[in-house]
Design a protein around this nucleic acid. Structure first.
Lengths: 109, 109
DNA sequence: ATTTAATATCGTAATATTGCAATATATAAA
DNA sequence: TTTATATATTGCAATATTACGATATTAAAT
């Protein structure tokens, strides 16, 4: 097949899966890292830094944008991509919650 | 192509990508949720709960195990799968760090 | 209005993922 | 040891992803 049975899962599960799938590629992790550590957020600078063609990076940016991990804003002739605080915060909270819950269980530990 | 240029990225980027890719499927999110909220950790109980065939779930479990998100231990005739504290902790810390770093920047916000 | 520069989209080839039936393996019970 | 139960693996068809060249779009500069 190759098709995911989206209908069989909750909206929350599907939404989180979209976010994590977007993060699940080294180029996209590299983009997130870039946006976090470098001063610039300009698309062209990402293209200059990463070892992939411009078209490929544009695709990766689209996927990150689609998952609401980044957002783009027009900056003259260029586009500035930045991390989305809301989504990052949501994931951070999710893992904090998971960790708290885990500490109350005793399975396998 | 369809092949990821793994060599062009750092080990850290690749390792994180493996973890997030593993989380990037609703069935695997459902498994994580199951292990977090239900009392049992038995493979068969996951198969009973999820809307997928046993073979499919076995594959998903393998991918989560490969990413070190879960670990399995033999429990008589069955296998008990549990979340891996170390990996969960690592991701939790990562997002906390990202969030802290983000608050010091001013881009797009 | 043209030209230039930056980014997005299209088309396509190669490879990966998803899902399942069938089958194999492993462990406990009889 | 045979049988039953639980989980893993294999093989395969359908679909998705990755990567890139070529081309389109968009916005500033001339």
């Amino acid at each position: 097949m190759g098709i995911t049975k989206t209908d069989e899962f909750t909206d929350e599960q599907n939404q989180l899966a979209i976010i994590f799938k977007a993060l699940g590629h080294p180029a996209r992790m590299a983009i997130v890292e870039f946006l976090l550590h470098k001063e610039t957020c300009i698309c062209g600078d990402i293209v200059d830094e990463l070892p992939l063609a411009q078209a490929t990076i544009s695709q990766h940016l689209k996927e990150l944008k689609n998952a609401n991990i980044i957002q783009g804003s027009i900056e003259g002739k260029s586009i500035c991509y930045c991390l989305n605080k809301e989504t990052i915060g949501k994931i951070q909270m999710l893992f904090t919650t998971i960790q708290t819950k885990m500490n109350k269980e005793k399975c396998c530990n």
